[in-house]
Design a binder for these strands. Structure first.
Lengths: 336, 336
DNA sequence: TTGAAAGCGCTAACAT
DNA sequence: ATGTTAGCGCTTTCAA
């Protein structure tokens, strides 16, 4: 910067003014400075400036999701990126793999990088470790699931209602033996979806059967195995309510491997690509990950502008997308 | 840091030594410093240090893909993240949407953030603007497609061979009217895949028919429309070779809407989730995005350790995954 | 083994 | 409209 000043024959502060577009510089002077900067390939160092600046901003936010490789997360990610990009902010992303230790470590690296804000999909662990950071003024927004131990802005869907609706949909078709295939019980959304499932069953007067609830299925393979076992049991379910994307796919693969995809109803939480092209097409409780990501990012920036904002809980609705698999009628026992 | 030094009753440099794990500090002193640091919630500022340090590292790399929301890109992304994370490096990601201007702007923000390395999937534009950056020693690695105007490390698949193989597969089944549905012709891989297609046809002595080559299909919708039109034409193709993920899906949707999915053969470039569950299951030329991402990231770090490395072109093979759609026999003309 | 002084590239606060 | 000086939080250099 000093070199630029010298070359332009001005003081160093004038260069600073020109580079930052501050007022109070004659047009001719600014032009000389700009030329000198160009000639010297001058690239201002944003970090050095931050050192002295009163309001420090790194123009970056941290985004922690289950995995950037998951379609749901990827859609959230893109929406966050778009909002951030429109404000000239970069996104640091990372994948927690639902591991609380990993989550904490990754948040730690984000914090040490002085991100301006943090968006995270909380794992099962406790997020109280974020307290000091929040007290220091860093906006933290939870997506998909609310964290434990801290009070933050969150953007989630109404999982209980969505699950209840899905289950009620199956009950309405006459199903009485409905199985629930759940995600990791550590994850808040998984528990809520199970709650919704149970509520709907109770409301319909269908007795709970713990044999029909399988939890902690976090991969296609685990869901496949669990479904396979369930359908091979003495008193198999006539319908399945799956709590997530990968679980739904695992269940469908199991049904197909048994040739039962037209005999057992399936409603899945989360929409997924090509769900409409399968046979039967898959009925799902759809969320809008783009809206979720956008809302979360906007919340970060709103709080960045006014740190005193009260924390808000944004709850988006889900939408039942009827496609066929959820409308299969129950088979009478023994008629298979 | 000064506060910590004072509290521990040592000099500031000693604190610096302890924090950075440098040798030459008595164990007892180090212990006192660590305690003081903990008590004051001391968080070293990595950027301030970089200011004076000789070998500046931000411990971050920039990753520019078509879109983080694309399954192929997301898989590459995750692989890059894993390699980076194992080295304590964060990933800044962004989506170019195949727009050269956007690419340049996003690379600009990465560069101004002083990323230690850059991985990018080049858009159709010229990447010569990266020259100064590379001369300055920043490792740049191209994924998926080689850039234009600069000589960099690249990790790609053999698109020509893959496309040739796919086309030959269709020719072997007796198809003579094979259409090619191509991605944006600006994108290097799209051109290469078209080349492979043409080579295979020429080798088999099948005359080229420009009516059967449609380019610049970058979305499901465009591919749908193009496929629809093609099949409705006077002399429709009996087989389709689609150059990419989204194009394949668009083509399949078009075939279905015409009820022709069992009559027209399809081989797609890029594998995609659930391709095996569709009816017919989709034959594809599969790449391994995880291997690609990993190789690219490893190349960045290798070059970071030795900037004088010659640039290498890593070409991974593709694999034809036979599932059904590509094995449909040609329909005799007029027999539909 | 330890510390003092200088300075990285920049901005804040105050000149002029 | 422009420049000067101090100092951000750290590392480097060099001396003790």
């Amino acid at each position: 910067m000093r070199d630029v000043a010298e070359r332009a024959g001005v003081g160093i502060k004038t260069v600073s003014r020109v580079v930052n577009g501050e007022p109070g510089v004659a047009a001719a002077t600014a032009e000389r400075v700009n030329r000198a900067a160009r000639e010297l390939h001058f690239q201002p160092d944003p970090f050095a400036g931050n050192l002295r600046r009163s309001v420090r901003r790194t123009q970056s936010i941290g985004l922690l999701l289950s995995s950037v490789d998951n379609p749901y997360c990827a859609a959230v990610h893109r929406a966050v990126e778009d909002v951030a990009e429109s404000r000239g902010v970069s996104v640091l992303s990372a994948s927690s793999d639902e591991d609380p230790q990993r989550e904490r470590a990754l948040v730690g690296t984000f914090v040490s990088r002085r991100v301006d804000g943090l968006i995270l999909s909380a794992t099962g662990g406790d997020q109280a470790y974020l307290r000091p950071e929040m007290d220091a003024g860093t906006p933290v927004v939870a997506v998909d699931r609310a964290p434990v131990g801290i009070d933050v802005d969150s953007v989630v869907v109404d999982n209980v209602a969505g699950a209840r609706g899905a289950t009620a949909h199956l009950l309405r078709r006459g199903h009485r033996r409905i199985a629930h295939l759940g995600d990791l019980s550590m994850i808040a959304t998984a528990t809520q979806r199970l709650d919704g499932f149970r509520q709907a069953a109770a409301e319909a007067g269908v007795p709970a059967d713990d044999q029909l609830v399988v939890q902690d299925l976090h991969t296609v393979e685990l869901a496949f195995d669990a479904t396979f076992r369930l359908l091979r049991s003495d008193d198999p379910p006539t319908a399945l309510f799956t709590s997530q994307n990968l679980v739904t796919i695992g269940a469908i693969r199991a049904l197909r491997s048994l040739g039962m995809q037209h005999d057992v109803a399936v409603v899945g939480f989360d929409d997924f690509a090509l769900a409409d092209l399968l046979d039967p097409a898959v009925t799902v409780v759809a969320q809008d990950p783009v809206a979720i990501g956008r809302a979360a990012a906007e919340r970060v920036f709103a709080r960045l502008e006014d740190r005193s904002l009260p924390s808000t809980q944004t709850v988006l609705a889900t939408r039942l997308v009827v496609r066929g698999s959820g409308e299969i009628a129950p088979r009478r026992r023994g008629s298979a």
